[in-house]
Design a protein around this nucleic acid. Sequence first.
DNA 1: TTGACATGCAAGTAGCCACTTGCTTATGGT
DNA 2: ACCATAAGCAAGTGGCTACTTGCATGTCAA
Lengths: 100, 100
Amino acid sequence: MVGGMADIYRALADPTRRAVLDELYERDRQTLFEICGRLTVKHGLASSRQAVSQHIDVLEEAGLVRVEREGRYRFHTIDTAPLRAIAERWPARGRKDGQP
Amino acid sequence: MVGGMADIYRALADPTRRAVLDELYERDRQTLFEICGRLTVKHGLASSRQAVSQHIDVLEEAGLVRVEREGRYRFHTIDTAPLRAIAERWPARGRKDGQP
DNA sequence: TTGACATGCAAGTAGCCACTTGCTTATGGT
DNA sequence: ACCATAAGCAAGTGGCTACTTGCATGTCAA
C-alpha cells in the first residue's frame, strides 16, 4: 500500500489530472508515453512527459491510480474506489430517490 | 442565477471549504457569523470572516451553496446535487454490486 | 438620526503548485 | 558492448490562490 492516502480532493483539482483519469478510465494499463500521446491527441493537452509524470505521482498518492512495473515499462491503472468517499461525505438528503 | 457553474473540483480542493460544507450539511440556513463561529469551535479552524466569505463565494459559484438574503442576514444552504457529476464521470466498473 | 450589527469590496502579500530544465538510471534489442 | 527507449530525480521559475488589511455599504433598534 501507499501509506498515507493523500488528499484525493486536491488530486482532482487539476484539469490535466482529471484528463489522465478520463484516459485511464477508457483504457487500463497504459504507460507514461501512451498517456502523454493520448492526452495530446484526444484531449488537446500539450503537457510534457515530466509534467504528466508529476501529475501521475499525485494521483498515485491519492490512491486513484495503481502502478505495475514490468521490465522497463510502468503500467498505470485507474482505481475509482477512493471516489466513493466524496459521495459518502455529503450524501443526498431529503429526496429519498438516490439512484434507481 | 449564477451563470457559469464554476469548477466544482477546485471548490472542493480546499480543506476549509470542505469544513464549511460539513457544517452546512449538519445545519442549513446559517449566516456567515454562525459558520465562522462553528468552524472555530467545532472544527478548530481559526479563519477570519473575510476568508470564510471568500470561500463561500467559491462554493456558491460552484453551485454547492445557495444563498437567501433576508434583511441584513444572508442564509447559506448546501446543495449536494453537483457532487453527482463526480461519481458519474468515473462510475465503478467491473463489480456490479455498488455498496454492500 | 444615531449607533450597533451583518455583510461587501478591493488592493496587497506570502506561500504553494504546475511546469520547466538538465542530467541520470535502467531495461531491451542488435 | 553499444545504442535507443522508458522512466527517475532534483532544483529553479512563474503564476495562481488563500489570506490579510482597511474602508464602505446596508439593515435594524432605540
